[in-house]
Design a protein around this nucleic acid. Structure first.
Lengths: 218, 218
DNA sequence: GAAATCAATTTGTATAGACATAACCATATC
DNA sequence: GATATGGTTATGTCTATACAAATTGATTTC
């Protein structure tokens, strides 16, 4: 069926035969045709609606999927040597922008960790993280000297929801110093917020040098 | 089952009961349990292997999914006015870097289109595209004056494979001029290559000002 | 002791059948 | 003519059953 769409045997917008008809044609059970069509729908090739039938997507709103591994795995997968350096660790009232993004009270106090991940001794990612100790109490005791908060949280704080943001930005003076860049140089910034149910766990800002590439195939 | 994992009732790395046992426990058919577990596996929460069973993922390699809509839809979805401006259109031998990325012969000649997408009269995306007329012959006739190559290709050239790359870069002199930025200012660059089977269709470079954000929730 | 073989187990996938659910469409009602 | 009503139909999802495929672990063989 994917081939028929690619070869324009079934044109965009066209209604394709019903599951029962296709099942008979392909000599398969309707359940099997259903599974196949659901896969095509997930891939964005067709649009399905009850009673209305299945049609070839007019504007295939495809989606790209990016795996989000641990930094260490990401670095080691490239065959590079991984190093971790803790820059600072403390507890403080977060800046207004962080507080608001996490939807916290004005009185909230968060664990703040800044650290650096290196690949072959070159700065790869600068991590600036705020952790909510009301949800992850153990974060108050963790010293993050040996294990990065990234890995520590995977072990200690499961999450149910997450939001990712990616953008380009100019390196701040601090980021430039840490990453061995010039101030104002473009950097690739990822931001992630995770929740356990309704409660925010952590907000992390991950800064990469502009040589960084996020790639995916579909 | 997702709840059990989130609540650490089933710990990371632990082997969870077999499908048959779970089916009995939940009062469902094994096929249903199988579907549920396959969903959890796709979400990266568990890892499954035949005969070995299902275990809770140690390092939940989650994946983020970004929908890749048409620029116009993206802009209109924000409630902004969409405008399109064709900057140039021609046919030429591509620069070596483009040729190599597409895996083409040195003699290849490609259709080259440069255009601008605006949101509320502000430059939103600069599109620099190369199209392979050997695969999409109609591209030689299309003038791209009214419809952007982005939308034109969706209508005229189905693809089977695609590769997306995102990164931060410094605006070139040309990009800065077109996007009303200063040269060297950070820009968010997306690059997409699509293929029909083995044959490359198009390579597009999409440049956004640094205010652009790519967001997803999971 | 190492390698080959084999049975058991768990997931993967297919089947047929059933009912649920949503949406379209024609008809009836006001 | 506008609004309800209900039948029809395509997809959504579940059940029960069967067999395939992969991998483990024990056993046998050399």
């Amino acid at each position: 069926m994917a081939r028929r769409i690619a070869e324009r045997l079934w044109l965009p917008g066209a209604l394709i035969p019903g599951e029962e008809v296709l099942a008979r044609e392909f000599g398969a059970a309707r359940a099997t045709v259903n599974r196949a069509l659901q896969e095509l729908a997930r891939a964005g090739l067709v649009e399905r609606r009850r009673r209305a039938g299945t049609r070839v997507a007019l504007h295939p709103v495809r989606e790209a999927r990016f795996v989000i591994p641990l930094v260490r795995q990401e670095i080691e997968a490239r065959g590079a040597e991984y190093q971790y350096r803790l820059l600072s660790r403390g507890e403080a009232a977060p800046p207004e922008i962080v507080r608001a993004r996490l939807g916290l009270e004005a009185t909230a106090s968060l664990v703040h960790v800044r650290c650096l991940h290196l690949a072959d001794r070159v700065p790869y990612q600068f991590e600036d993280r705020w952790i909510n100790p009301d949800v992850v109490a153990a974060a108050r005791e963790a010293d993050f000297a040996g294990v990065s908060p990234n890995e520590w949280l995977v072990e200690h704080a499961p999450f149910t929801d997450a939001e990712f943001t990616f953008r380009a930005a100019a390196a701040s003076a601090e980021e430039a110093a840490v990453m061995q860049l010039r101030e104002g140089e473009p950097v690739f910034v990822g931001e992630r917020i995770t929740w356990l149910g309704e409660r925010p766990i952590t907000l992390v800002r991950m800064v990469h040098p502009s040589s960084h590439r996020m790639v995916t195939r579909l």
